[in-house]
């Protein structure tokens, strides 16, 4: 708590570091700031090529679903990855003067929030092209972002502190984030996992998965990222509707449509959102508290290291 007051007192350092992070990221590049718009655009271009052209995925709204879900993921993963270097990179400042060290992971979080805002502009431009309507439900993006931000901050603070003492943290996290990406419903909608079953498990991993499938699905639903990513879709694309949603297309036969709807209703009944959302919020807040505690405890000896 007193650390929070200190951060407020030293907010000028925070603004300066954020400004610095933004400037340095695109330093030595001719296009400079334009990259924060170009980067997401190019990523989307790559996906368009891979999924639409190579794999021929033609579900309705496929690109919109993908890109919308990618935004909170990108924000999360970039924040966590950046955090592993945030103290070591600023060792010169840490050794120079006292300031509340919490400012370091906070500056990473804020910088990435700003990048998220830029990416959002790109998204809105694409929506205009795709003809997605703007609704009042867009506002749900704010709590969804907050949820992801709190969770990301907790992990960042913890990782920032540990990576001062153990360089391995950076490599481990790089790989874990790669795995986590596929465990988060970015490339697929959440119902794919919820309806999934393993009919004929034939190796150790599959046997384990099929034996614990239901609890694992619950864990998956409690992941603040699952909730965050899908809430973005709900807010921006589904008009605030429950995000356990199966797209129904005119190309489907009437029976297929009815089956899809029945499945959707069944899943919605099995996985009522409210408890999962509250659970995810609790996990995010707990992570933030633990992360901050670890960080503050380690911060005392940052200046003695390297």
């Amino acid at each position: 708590m007193s650390e929070l007051l200190e951060v407020v007192r030293y907010r000028e350092v925070l603004w300066n570091l954020v400004r610095r992070n933004l400037k340095v990221r695109y330093k030595n590049s001719i296009l400079g700031f334009a990259w924060s718009l170009l980067n997401p655009l190019m990523q989307i271009g790559v996906w368009y090529f891979v999924f639409k052209i190579l794999f021929g995925r033609d579900e309705p709204n496929f690109m919109a679903l993908l890109v919308t879900g990618f935004l909170p993921w990108l924000f999360f993963s970039q924040t966590v990855l950046d955090s592993t270097a945030c103290v070591t990179q600023e060792m010169a400042l840490v050794k120079k003067a006292y300031f509340p060290r919490t400012i370091l992971p906070l500056s990473v979080l804020l910088s990435n929030l700003i990048h998220l805002a830029f990416a959002f502009i790109v998204l809105l431009a694409l929506y205009a092209v795709w003809g997605v309507d703007v609704t009042i439900y867009y506002l749900w993006v704010i709590p969804a972002t907050l949820l992801v931000a709190v969770f990301a901050y907790g992990l960042s603070a913890m990782l920032a502190a540990w990576s001062v003492f153990y360089a391995d943290v950076r490599f481990i996290i790089g790989n874990l984030i790669g795995l986590w990406f596929f465990l988060t419903p970015v490339l697929y909608p959440v119902y794919h996992v919820l309806k999934g079953s393993l009919k004929n498990p034939d190796n150790v991993v599959e046997i384990f998965l099929s034996a614990h499938l239901e609890p694992l699905k619950k864990v998956f639903m409690l992941d603040p990222l699952t909730i965050g990513v899908e809430s973005y879709r709900s807010a921006l694309l589904y008009g605030g509707e429950n995000f356990i949603k199966i797209q129904v297309t005119p190309a489907m036969t009437e029976l297929e449509q009815a089956n899809a709807l029945a499945l959707q209703e069944g899943l919605r009944a099995d996985y009522p959102l409210l408890p999962y959302i509250l659970g995810a919020v609790a996990i995010a807040v707990a992570t933030a508290i633990i992360g901050q505690w670890v960080f503050q405890r380690k911060a005392e000896s940052f200046a003695e290291q390297g």
Partner: peptide, 26 residues
């Protein structure tokens, strides 16, 4: 504090930017 040589400056930032960053630290 003016602790040890050259600490607290960011090599990639200009002198002006470093003045503002450094002063905020103080």
């Amino acid at each position: 504090p003016l602790l040890e040589l050259g600490t607290g400056f960011h090599p990639d930032l200009t002198g002006r930017e470093n003045v503002f960053l450094n002063a905020s630290l103080l």
